[in-house]
């Protein structure tokens, strides 16, 4: 464990709290892409299958995995029941079939090993790298976003972005660490996808302005 990885995981936790807080206080999930949320649940379920097979790694690891799966499922539960009337499917129209299909193809072509567990792990890594697209697409369609929603997107993106210095750190100082090419490539791609958003977030939201596309 190093500071970047810890901050990354913390950022992920914060993003979850922001999203749930936004929905609970405004009693609405407007501006939040249901499709992205479904993709994230798929990501965590497929990645953390090892909760049931692998020997115990650490309390931290197990706890975080359970929190990510549970909070993701809870978000979807809220969006599909209590706050369903506030969700507008007409602007949440990204075709996620392509993201699911593309991730599956990548996972099948370059798995770390030819086992179900390793293919599903790779699938989840690729899918995570693009899972934000329906959300970003929705922001683009409406041309603006609530500030709280942009905080959520930022914190979620910062999670993977912070993993990049973590990998550099592990590569340099952690002799036992085995860098995982798929995670690094997908992590870089994911951060690149966010870069436009990061830029607008930094130049507008951080200066107290509304998130609005030029």
């Amino acid at each position: 464990m190093n500071i970047f990885r810890m901050l990354g995981d913390l950022s992920h936790l914060i993003s979850i709290f922001i999203l749930l807080h936004k929905m609970q206080t405004s009693k609405s999930c407007s501006g939040v892409s249901f499709k992205s949320q479904v993709l994230y649940l798929v990501v965590y379920v497929f990645r953390y299958l090892d909760l049931f097979t692998n020997p115990f790694m650490s309390y931290y690891n197990t706890l975080m995995k359970i929190v990510f799966i549970a909070s993701s499922a809870y978000t979807i539960y809220l969006m599909s029941t209590v706050f369903k009337p506030t969700h507008d499917p007409a602007i949440d129209t990204f075709k996620i079939e392509y993201l699911l299909g593309g991730s599956l193809v990548m996972a099948l072509l370059f798995p770390p090993k030819w086992t179900f567990m390793e293919i599903s792990w790779a699938f989840s890594i690729w899918l995570e790298s693009v899972a934000i697209l329906p959300q970003l697409f929705m922001v683009q369609r409406t041309g603006e976003a609530e500030t709280i929603t942009t905080h959520y997107i930022f914190a979620l993106g910062a999670y993977r972005a912070l993993y990049i210095p973590n990998w550099i750190w592990r590569y340099m100082f952690d002799k036992k660490a085995k860098l995982e090419t798929i995670a690094v490539v997908a992590g870089l791609a994911q951060t690149l996808l966010y870069s436009d958003f990061f830029y607008i977030y930094w130049t507008k939201v951080m200066k107290g302005k509304k998130f609005q596309l030029p």
Binding site: D9, R47, D50, M57, P112, W121
Partner: peptide
């Protein structure tokens, strides 16, 4: 040694 379980990140 955790060779068989390489995915130690989240």
């Amino acid at each position: 040694e955790k060779k068989e379980h390489p995915h130690d990140e989240l």
